[in-house]
């Protein structure tokens, strides 16, 4: 392969170079504020919710599918958890477990329909996108659920370690890093992870190789759903309310992160660090542009252009082979 430098493809180095260039440019424009340690910690924290969704999205996209319902599942889970998070009512474990279970259940429903109903994932999860939003509005009665207990608020609002250390990380970023570590391990080091790649690369060949394609497909949506549930829980905790309108459009940010990170939309290819870099790329850009006081409408234009540029570059790099 001429398109390789050491372990990495030109494509991977390209996105990394663009990432570094972005950070340098923002540092210069902001006079160094953007690369202050405090700001970097903040960026990771702000990337966390999207990052957790992106890890789930990565599983689905590597398997050759797509999950448009993550934002809606996030909202349902967040609302469901908040309903049981009023002060002095239930133990904290109840809303936490509930959020994850709601996410898992909706994800399994997606997976079942894709794997065994043989409905295209775009359609199934598009339906779930709409249904999930409806469910969130029904559950919450249309308005945000307020009056949240302190322990629930501290789930995503605290620091790690909790006290007494000079250097503490926002706990939100700790969840993010834990999810990334677990996701990366499963995807790259386990038999299951290899099967996900195989199914995405060539479903027929995977089937002939004795892989239980249906189960693999179902499981990736379950993973994505459960992680959406976790993200919903953390978001509800972060904004101290269960908002049925939360997370709309988050699926697009997660897909954007995965895409910018060079994970092929046709499945079977892409590395976990791509999803992480893509997520942080988006967060860095948003943070930097906010610091510069750039209007958010213009930010949308820039973000869209970068997504297209990333995919354009990806396709060009592939064609050269």
């Amino acid at each position: 392969m001429k398109n390789r430098v050491g372990k990495y493809t030109v494509r991977e180095l390209g996105i990394f170079a663009a990432f570094i260039a972005l950070i340098v440019a923002l540092a210069v424009v902001s006079g160094g504020t953007s690369i202050s340690p405090r700001n970097l910690v903040l960026v990771i924290k702000q990337a966390s919710i999207n990052g957790i969704l992106s890890v789930g999205m990565m599983f689905v996209i590597v398997s050759g599918g797509i999950d448009l319902s993550v934002g809606s599942i996030l909202a349902v889970s967040g609302v469901a958890a908040s309903m049981f998070a009023h002060p002095g009512e239930y133990h904290l474990a109840i809303p936490v477990a509930l959020a994850m279970l709601v996410g898992l259940a909706l994800g399994c429903a997606n997976g079942f329909l894709v794997a065994f109903g043989e409905i295209p994932p775009f359609i199934v999860t598009l339906g779930m996108l709409t249904m999930g939003r409806g469910l969130a509005l029904i559950l919450s009665g249309g308005s945000p659920i307020y009056n949240i207990s302190k322990p629930f608020e501290n789930l995503a609002g605290g620091f790690f370690p909790s006290a007494g250390f000079p250097y503490r990380a926002p706990i939100l970023s700790v969840y993010f890093l834990a999810v990334v570590a677990a996701g990366a391990f499963v995807l790259t080091r386990t038999v299951y992870g290899r099967h996900v790649y195989a199914v995405g690369g060539n479903e027929m060949s995977a089937r002939i190789s004795g892989i239980r394609v249906g189960l693999v497909k179902m499981s990736v949506y379950a993973i994505s759903g459960a992680l959406s549930g976790l993200a919903g829980l953390l978001l509800a905790s972060r904004i101290v309310s269960g908002n049925p309108n939360s997370g709309s459009g988050y699926e697009l940010d997660a897909i954007a992160a995965v895409t910018i990170g060079g994970i092929s939309m046709s499945g079977g290819a892409g590395k976990w660090h791509g999803a992480v870099i893509g997520t942080i790329f988006i967060a860095v850009m948003g943070n930097g542009l906010d610091l510069m006081g750039m209007p958010s409408n213009l930010q949308l234009v820039i973000k869209g252009a970068i997504i297209i540029a990333a995919v354009f570059y990806d396709i060009r790099a592939k064609r050269k082979r």
Binding site: Y197, A198, N202, M204, S205, I208, G210, I211, G267
Partner: peptide
């Protein structure tokens, strides 16, 4: 191309895919 190989993967990943359980 349809039923044998995963063209998105490496040669090694293709070769070991059926035997992964034995080496794990």
């Amino acid at each position: 191309k349809q039923k044998g190989l995963n063209l998105a993967a490496t040669v090694g990943e293709n070769i070991s895919i059926v035997s992964l359980e034995e080496c794990s």
